[in-house]
């Protein structure tokens, strides 16, 4: 049933997905020439391509097509899980495509060993999982305008945080310090657990986050569907 549901989403959103992912392909190609590190490149590439599932949800809301999906011989849980499979699959495929670019493009500024490093793969998986875990429930609950408001709000928040960080650089509780504290905590965990242990612990945490998000999305979807 999952395969059929994903097939439905891909057929009905084919043009929009081709357009979006084509645009992302151009963006990551440009990014491969910007002189950034492998992990940063992996982060942005995965972020772009993880929007496939969000595009599907947004279009479903835009065309009020949820009713169509709900009248098909499938369960609400199946519909939601379909999106949680499609998201990482499309995000992962997009990230693999993006990561292959620096390896095949002679003009790319990103060294191949950084692309092939385990940290880059972990960054990609984390980005895709966390993006979907946060955005899928919000999109199911608040629809197209909700997700647009959230994305615009996050950008405004980011700009404000950046401005605050510059203004209060020496204040201990400033946003810059918070980011540095998180980075330092992750660094400590990495040192304590070792490379493999840290990777396994991260993957386990991501699996839990993803499962919790999926449960929340199913509950929201059921509630919105059944009134």
């Amino acid at each position: 049933m999952l395969r059929e549901l994903i097939h439905k989403d891909l057929v009905l959103n084919r043009n929009a997905l081709l357009l979006n992912n084509g645009l992302f392909a151009v963006m990551v190609t440009a990014l491969a020439h910007q002189g950034i590190g492998g992990q940063e490149y992996g982060f942005f590439s995965s972020l772009f391509f993880s929007f496939t599932a969000i595009t599907v949800l947004v279009r479903e809301d835009k065309f009020k097509a949820r009713a169509l999906g709900c009248s098909l011989p499938v369960t609400a849980r199946g519909i939601v899980i379909g999106r949680y499979v499609l998201g990482p699959a499309a995000g992962g495929a997009g990230a693999l495509f993006a990561l292959s670019l620096p390896l095949v493009l002679p003009t790319s500024s990103i060294p191949g060993d950084q692309i092939l490093a385990a940290e880059t793969a972990l960054t990609c998986i984390s980005t895709i999982t966390i993006t979907l875990a946060l955005l899928v429930p919000v999109t199911i609950r608040f629809g197209m305008f909700g997700i647009l408001a959230l994305l615009v709000g996050l950008q405004v928040l980011g700009v404000a945080a950046f401005a605050l960080a510059r203004r209060f650089e020496d204040v201990a509780l400033g946003p810059g310090h918070a980011v540095r504290w998180i980075a330092s905590a992750l660094g400590d965990a990495h040192a304590a657990l070792g490379g493999l242990g840290f990777s396994l612990a991260t993957l386990a945490c991501l699996a839990i986050v993803s499962m919790l998000s999926c449960q929340a999305s199913v509950a929201i979807f059921e509630r919105r569907r059944t009134g």
């Binding site: 009905l12 959103n13 084919r14 043009n15 929009a16 065309f63 097509a65 169509l68 009248s71 011989p73």
Partner: peptide, 18 residues
């Protein structure tokens, strides 16, 4: 409750396997 930019053929192809 159909997709504005899809036609009958596409809708049929999408839901037929279900």
């Amino acid at each position: 409750c159909f997709y504005d930019d899809a036609n009958l053929e596409q809708h049929a192809r999408a839901i037929a396997p279900l």
